[in-house]
Simulated assay, not measured.
Amino acid sequence: MALSYYRRTLSEGKLPQEDAPSCLRTLGLITADPHTPGYITPVPPEAAAFAALRPLEEAIESQQRTYRSVQATLSVFEQIYDDARKHEQPPLTTLTGPEIISKTLEAAVADCRTELLTAQPGGGRPENLLAEALARDVRMLARGVRQRTIYQHTVRSHQPTMAYIEQATAAGAEVHTLVEVFERMIICDREVAFIPTGTNRSDGALQIRHPALVHFLVSLFESAWLRSLPVEPGMLPPRPAAITSDVQRAIMQAIVSGETDESIARRMGMSRRTVAEHVRKVSLQLGSTSRAQLGYLLATSGVLSSE
Rank of each mutant, 00 (worst) to 15 (best):
S223Q: 08
S263Q: 09
L178E: 07
E262I: 08
G172D: 04
V282P: 01
D203V: 06
R273S: 15
F221T: 02
T199P: 07
V231R: 03
R273Q: 14
A173D: 09
L213D: 09
S219D: 09
P238N: 12
G258S: 07
P240I: 08
A224C: 11
E180M: 11
R209D: 01
P211N: 05
H215N: 13
A171E: 02
R227F: 09
A254E: 01
V192I: 14
T274N: 11
M268C: 12
V279I: 15
M235G: 08
M270L: 12
I187E: 04
A171S: 03
A205V: 06
S263K: 06
V279D: 00
E191C: 08
G204P: 06
V231I: 15
A254D: 09
I195G: 08
A163N: 14
A171G: 02
T244K: 04
A171Y: 05
S219M: 06
R201D: 08
F221A: 00
E222G: 06
S263W: 03
Q248W: 05
H210R: 09
V214T: 12
I165C: 05
T199H: 12
R184A: 15
T197C: 14
A276H: 13
I195W: 05
P211W: 03
E180V: 12
A254P: 02
T274A: 15
P211F: 02
P233F: 08
H215T: 14
G234A: 09
Q207T: 03
L220M: 14
F216I: 02
V218E: 00
V179I: 05
A212V: 04
A205I: 07
R184S: 15
Q167C: 05
V181H: 08
H210W: 06
R239I: 02
I264P: 05
V231Y: 08
N200Q: 14
A241R: 02
I251D: 01
V214A: 11
P237R: 05
A171F: 04
T169V: 14
A265W: 01
A242T: 04
Q253K: 07
R266E: 08
V192H: 03
M270H: 01
A193M: 07
R267F: 02
T244D: 14
A212Q: 12
R227G: 03
L236E: 07
E191S: 11
G172T: 07
D203L: 07
R266S: 03
P230R: 15
T177M: 04
S245H: 13
Y164N: 02
